[in-house]
């Protein structure tokens, strides 16, 4: 029994970190753009396809494919900001609905281009690490490792570079940031571009784990939603805490009660947190 608990906790922490990867771009986009981006999952899907094209069609090594995915995604994000989201800066709700339209366009474009069938993505590693009775699949360990490195790199960028500071200033308060000389015309596209790139990299990174098809965007969107509500809209440390919590809840409830109970517990928790602390676990009070 204690073995099962320990194993569940390990599973939960790994899963939570994967969910954090899925959610971090979403929370950044909300922080900068004030947009609840329903197309977030589709950018994850696009990232998975870009990585697939890089590895399977162009024969690139996986890290290079991932780097290219990130670069293309930043451009795509900036472009989308310019064409779709810019007119709705003052209007959160319209921006949100525009993102629904964008999600429809992206998903069905992918369906036309790639067809509905799942695509095969070569496994990078296989086998398990064993610690006594405890098991960690190597594929997850690898994804986790790369994911943590990317998250740390992103954290360093955010905390210790000029651009990162400007972005953080925007997340905190847009008007004040503008007064202090943060150039909105650059920072907005950059913010969304980074959010999209994080989603796309997550998609590419998790493609070997969870597969590639035009419909894989639904799960990351749902998880990002939950993580971001729990953690607080726009709060990156809150998202981290919430993601790990979500991973643990899913893993423990699935292991000891049932899978459907896990989903109900999760959503019930979301409702309770929103009612008690509308701004989320670590969000700023605003509601």
């Amino acid at each position: 029994m204690s073995f099962l608990i320990a194993q569940s906790i390990i599973n939960g922490v790994i899963l939570g970190t994967l969910y954090l990867m899925m959610a971090i771009g979403f929370t950044l986009a909300f922080g900068v753009m004030r947009i609840v981006n329903f197309a977030h999952g589709e950018f994850y899907m696009i990232g998975a396809f870009l990585a697939l094209i890089g590895v399977n069609w162009l024969g690139l090594p996986f890290p290079l494919a991932l780097a290219l995915t990130a670069a293309l995604a930043i451009l795509l994000g900036a472009l989308v900001e310019r064409i779709v989201f810019r007119p709705f800066r003052a209007d959160e709700l319209s921006g949100m609905i525009a993102s629904l339209g964008l999600a429809m366009i992206l998903q069905h474009a992918a369906l036309i281009i790639f067809g509905p069938d799942p695509q095969s993505f070569p496994a990078l590693v296989s086998g398990v690490y064993r610690l006594g009775d405890l098991i960690v699949p190597q594929s997850r360990a690898l994804t986790l490792g790369v994911g943590v490195v990317i998250l740390l790199a992103f954290y360093v960028f955010l905390m210790h570079t000029r651009m990162g500071r400007a972005l953080r200033a925007l997340v905190q308060d847009q008007e004040v940031a503008a007064i202090y000389g943060v150039r909105l015309e650059i920072m907005y596209p950059l913010g969304l571009g980074l959010g999209v790139a994080l989603a796309a990299v997550a998609g590419g990174l998790m493609a070997p784990l969870f597969g590639v098809s035009p419909f894989i965007g639904a799960t990351p969107l749902l998880k990002a939603f939950i993580v971001v509500i729990l953690g607080g809209l726009g709060s990156i440390p809150g998202a981290a805490l919430a993601a790990i919590l979500l991973g643990l809840i899913e893993s423990l409830t699935s292991s000891f009660v049932s899978a459907s109970a896990a989903d109900i517990v999760t959503f019930a928790l979301v409702v309770v947190v929103l009612l008690i602390r509308p701004a989320g676990l670590l969000g700023r009070g605003e509601a």
Binding site: E92, L274, L275
Partner: peptide, 24 residues
């Protein structure tokens, strides 16, 4: 008591909760 995007999000969660509970 919630407003704006927060109300949107909680109602989203409630809709999912309704569906999941009904399935149970």
């Amino acid at each position: 008591r919630l407003r704006g995007v927060y109300f949107v999000l909680i109602t989203f969660a409630l809709n999912e909760l309704f569906r999941l509970v009904m399935l149970e």
